[in-house]
Amino acid sequence: MSKSLRLIVVLTFTALFSGAVLSVLNIYTAPRIELNQNQTLSDAIGQVLPGEKACDVKVIDGVTFYIGRDEKNQPIGVAFLAEGDGFQSRLKILVGMDMALTRILKIKILQQAETPGLGTKIENDPTNKTDAAWFTNQFNDLPVAKAISYVKNQKPVAAESQIQAITGATISSKSVVEIINAAIAKNRELFLKKVK
């Protein structure tokens, strides 16, 4: 066998071996990975739209809306993804709202890699023993007829769309507020015009 032929044969066999292993692997793992991802998303939708039993997916101008329905098949709310930059990472937030998009039902942080122990409190604050998710819970049933704002060192007024910023993580708190505000402003028009 000539030298160059041998190189080709060896590399081809290595690649074939690799391809075979990976195809077998894919048969077993791909469905599970997809299931995991769908599970995460549908769990999250269920959380931000309390009482959701079924979910329609509607894509309007490239924005995906998840319309949740209760057991009587009545629409109870709509969820969408809000995305933007936090203090040091990309934030992905799932926002659940009523059908008129005037009130937030619940939000959930899907992805963040903020400063451990500070910015991560937007998702989970272990120093708050009674409610580790106090930051996101502030958004529960928050009226958003006007844009959400944050306050520091004073009590927020929910009726005024105010939330309390995290001490030491003002930028992360501010980012969450701004990302949600921007997404609501953009999606409200889009959704109300196309759906109704």
Partner: peptide, 10 residues
């Protein structure tokens, strides 16, 4: 890839 996919699946 085997390790990565397996961890992601399970």
């Amino acid at each position: 890839t085997v390790a990565d996919r397996t961890i992601a699946a399970f």
